[in-house]
Design a protein around this nucleic acid. Structure first.
Lengths: 349, 349
DNA sequence: GTGAAAGCGCTAACAC
DNA sequence: GTGTTAGCGCTTTCAC
C-alpha cells in the first residue's frame, strides 16, 4: 500500500481533466511563458473549478521553499511582541507567506533548540529577537536560514539584515526634559545587557547624566532582567536609598509594570511624589491618569520593516545586509513634574 | 540539474556512514522493532554525530503529517489571544508541534480564505475562534482538517471538540453583586451575537435582570462589535440617556478599553459616579486604582485545554467530540459602590 | 533482521 | 509549445 493521499485534488488530476500533461499544467499555474493562451485558459478554468491548491510539502521538496516564516521572540503574550507579530503577519500573509511563532523565553539554550527545530521545517526566513546577542555559535546558527532579520538586535560580526530602534534619541529627550524641570537625581531601571535595547539605554543614560551634570550615582542606574518582578524589586530597592531619586525611568513595559506595582504598594503618587517615564507606550501608560510620559516607537512599523527586509532578502539573497533604524521619541503627557521635598520624603516613607 | 539540496544531512548519508540501508536507518529513527540492537546503536550514534534532522517536508509527503498546528484568532495583538497563543505553544512545542498563527480580523470572508491557505499547508490541526459561528459552509471547511478545536465557540450541528468558558456564572455573580449593593439600572455592552461569548452574556444579562427585578430597559443591553470604538460609542450613547444606568458592564477587554476612554473623556469617576465591571482581567483593570471588578477566566488554561483536546484528537481521530467548559468567576475589587444621586447627575452632565 | 524499490505531488531539464 | 521523465527525502511494502 502506498502512502496516504492527503490533498484532495492534485495537479495530475487538473492536467488530466484539461487534457494536457502535468508539466504544461504546472507551467500554467506557475505563470511561465510558452503556453498557448487557449491551453492556458483551459487549465486555469479546470484548476479553478476543481479548487486546486498546490501541496506545499510537495512543492517544498522540489523548490526548497515553504512559504513559511518564523518569528522568534521571548514572549508572544507580551503586547509589544504581539503587536509586532500582527504587523508582520499583515505584511507577509498578503504575499502568500504564513507566520510561525515561537517563544524563546529569553533563554539562549531554548532558543538554540528552537532554531534547530525550525531549521528542519525549511522555513524561508526567520525574524528573530535573539535572547543574547553574544551567544556562542549564534552566527553559524543564523546561517542555517536563507534569510534572517534581527529584530532590534545587532551582531556586529554577522552580515545580517536588522531593524533597530533608535532608543538613544527618545531617552535623551526624556532625560533632558526631566533635567529641564529640575530633576538632578534620576534613576534608570534597564534590562539585560545581552540585548542592545537595554545596552543603548544604559549608555545613553550615563552619557546624558554626565553631559547635563546630574547626579552620577552608580546605584541610580540598574541593569537586570526584563521582567515585572525585577522592575518591582529594583524600584523597591532604589526608593529605599538614603537619597532616593526624584524621577524614575523604566526601560521597557515589563519593567514599568513592576515599577507601577511597586509604587502603588509604596503609596507613591505620580507625579506628585515622583516623576515617572516609561519606555514603550502600552495600555497601562496610555490610560493612566495622568497619561504617562513615554519614550514611544511604532511597533507596527518595526514588524512591517522587518518583513520588508526579509522579503527583499528572499528576492535577492546576495545583496548587502541592510540596517534600518527607526525613530523613537519622547512624549510628555503629565507624569513628570518638578521635584518636591515633600515628594521625596513621601517616597522615603 | 536536479532540485536543490536543502537539508544538510540526509537519511541516506546517515545510512551510508552507519553501513546500513536507508530503510534500516529509517526504522531505527522511527523506533520500529526488528532491528538488531547493535545496528540500532550504530545508526543512533552516527545520526547524533552528524546532527541528523529529518526533513519535515519529505516526511510530510509520505505520512501526510506536518507537525504544525494553526491558531486562528481575530487579532493576535489582543493580549487575550496572545496569552492563549503562548499557553498553546507551551503545551504543543514540547511535543514536537509548531504553532502557526493567523489573524482573521473577525471577518468571515478573510477567515475562509485563511482556512483554504492553511489547508494546503497540510496542518495537522487547527485551533480556531471562528468569526461567525453561523457562517455558511463553515462545517465543511472545518472538515478539511484532521483535528479541529473551537476556541470558545460552538457549532451545535458540527461534531467538533471545543473549549468553552462558562461566561454565564461569572456574569450572573457580577450582576448579583451590583444588585445587592443597590443598583437597579445596570447596562451591558456586549459584542457580536455571531460568537457565543457575547450571546451568552446577553442572554445571562436579560435573565438575571428579570430574575432580580431590575430595570429591563432594552436600551441598557447593547450588542455590537467587539472593538474599542464601539465600546466608546456605546458608553457615550448610554450615558446620554434620559435615565442613565448607575452601573456598566463591558463584555470584553476591547469594549472595556473603549468604555474606560469614554468615561475619562466624560469626566466620570469610578466608582464614585459610576460602578464598572469588566469581563476579562487585563493590565488596565488590574492596575487601575482602585482595581476593577472583573469577571475573570484563566486564559492560559483555555489555550492549554485546547491544545490537549487537539492532541487527544490527533491520537484517536474517531473518538467522540468533547466539550470542555472552563469556569469564570466574579471578583469584586473596588470599582463598584452603591449608586448615588450625585453620581447619576454627574454622569448625565 | 535487512535491503531494494516504489512512490507521495510537484518542478524543471530535456527531447521533440 | 508540449510531453516525458527524473528525482527532491522520506516511509513502507515486499522479497530475501
Amino acid at each position: 500500500m502506498g502512502p496516504p493521499t492527503v490533498t484532495d485534488v492534485t495537479l495530475r488530476e487538473v492536467a488530466r481533466q484539461a487534457g494536457v500533461s502535468v508539466s504544461t499544467a504546472s507551467r500554467v499555474l506557475n505563470d511561465q511563458p510558452f503556453v498557448r493562451s487557449e491551453v492556458r485558459e483551459r487549465v486555469m478554468l479546470v484548476s479553478r473549478e476543481l479548487g486546486y491548491r498546490p501541496d506545499v510539502a510537495a512543492r517544498s521538496m522540489r523548490t526548497g521553499t515553504t512559504g513559511a516564516i518564523a518569528l522568534v521572540v521571548s514572549d508572544i503574550s507580551n503586547p509589544l511582541f504581539a503587536t509586532i507579530a500582527k504587523s508582520a503577519d499583515e505584511a507577509l500573509s498578503p504575499r502568500g507567506y504564513s507566520l510561525m511563532v515561537a517563544n524563546s523565553s529569553n533563554d539562549p539554550a531554548h532558543e538554540e533548540e528552537l532554531m534547530a527545530a525550525l531549521r528542519q521545517r525549511r522555513l524561508d526566513g526567520l525574524v528573530i529577537a535573539v535572547a543574547d546577542e553574544g551567544a556562542a555559535g549564534l552566527r553559524e546558527r543564523l546561517e542555517w536560514f536563507q534569510a534572517v532579520v534581527l529584530l532590534d538586535r545587532e551582531i556586529p560580526s554577522a552580515r545580517v539584515d536588522c531593524v533597530l530602534s533608535d532608543h538613544a534619541t527618545g531617552l535623551a529627550e526624556a532625560i533632558g526634559h526631566l533635567a529641564s524641570i529640575g530633576h538632578s537625581r534620576i534613576a534608570l531601571i534597564a534590562g539585560t545587557t545581552a540585548q542592545r535595547g537595554s545596552r543603548v539605554r544604559l549608555a545613553t543614560f550615563r552619557r546624558e547624566v554626565r553631559r547635563l551634570g546630574l547626579d552620577q550615582d552608580q546605584e541610580l542606574c540598574r541593569a537586570g532582567e526584563l521582567t515585572i518582578d525585577d522592575g518591582y524589586r529594583a524600584v523597591t530597592e532604589i526608593l529605599a536609598m538614603a537619597r532616593p531619586p526624584t524621577a524614575l525611568i523604566a526601560g521597557n513595559n515589563q519593567l514599568f509594570a513592576g515599577m507601577f506595582s511597586a509604587l502603588r504598594d509604596l503609596g507613591v503618587s505620580i507625579p506628585r511624589d515622583l516623576s515617572v517615564v516609561a519606555c514603550e507606550d502600552t495600555e497601562l501608560t496610555a490610560f493612566h491618569n495622568p497619561p504617562l510620559d513615554v519614550v514611544r516607537r511604532d511597533l507596527a512599523e518595526l514588524g512591517r520593516e522587518a518583513s520588508e527586509l526579509l522579503l527583499a532578502r528572499l528576492e535577492s539573497p546576495r545583496r548587502r545586509a541592510r540596517r534600518v533604524v527607526l525613530s523613537t521619541r519622547f512624549e510628555s503627557r503629565g507624569s513628570s513634574a518638578p521635584p518636591s521635598r515633600r515628594g521625596r520624603r513621601k517616597a522615603l516613607r
